[in-house]
Amino acid sequence: MSKGEIVLGCLAPHPPHLVYAENPPQNEAFSEGGWETLRWGYAKLARKLKTIDYDAIVIFTPHWQTYIGTHFLGLPEFKSKSVDPVFPNLFRYNYDLKVDVELAEAMHEETAKAGIITKMMRNPDFRVDYGTITSCHLLNPSWDKPIVTISSNRNSHYYSNEVMIEQAKALGEACMRAIEKSGKKVVLVSSHSLSHRHFVTEAPLPEDMSREHIYNHSQYVWDMKIIDMFRKGQMQEVVDIMPEYTEQTIAETEAGGLIWMMAAMGVPSYPAEIYGYQSVIGTGNCIACWDPNTETRELVL
């Protein structure tokens, strides 16, 4: 068996607004569109993904929050309806997805060996979180690949952003070892926004784009700083600046997804492909990917 590898790492924000705006048949709500900059960026990244040979998507989500360790989805199928508790008016999505349980168990085992508290989730009534569903739907609308969802342990709440970073790094490295041993080709997905201050009111028509803008200029400047570092391949610097960035912008990076993905990918020093940046209800969202293959890596935006 040849060594497994990570064939792509994606930063894939999950505002349910983006699925809502697409009007897929799985979603009950109906929209007149909205947030095209992000949706068109996602469509382009989804097309790239179609050209890549891979076996599974492994996604780290802030919306399966665990305080007692890191949990992995551990049953082969989940079929239910996901209703967003915060935006139920926008997102009521009927999902039917497959899990690569073998890969989940391998990552669980390798993570436990690294001293991290872990748990397999085997309750068939469990509802898969809307972060997983939104990011996976937008990256792979045909849902033709199995996934593994990893919960986000909230170390930043219990300890600090620095502790979160150390644990997310250890988790990423353990997942990488498991992927290598598995012989599989895997796409990693870090599902989150960048700056994360929301407006607490909503327009009567949520997709009214005349109302959409970043929460404040400080959030924008920080987001641009981070994206500039993505472009330059300065991911070690991004890791180093993360505690400050997360604190200043209440960023959704607090869950650890980006650090996890960067650690698993050996902290890339090559440029990221940028597919778009736009605000959603005031938060900053960037779609990006890190392509380790120099043949297919390109300058997108």
Binding site: W64, Q65, T66, I68, H71, R122, N123, R127
Partner: peptide, 12 residues
């Protein structure tokens, strides 16, 4: 049928 994020192993 609700399942808790952390305590899913205790049941539905």
């Amino acid at each position: 049928t609700h399942v808790d994020d952390d305590f899913h192993y205790l049941g539905s």
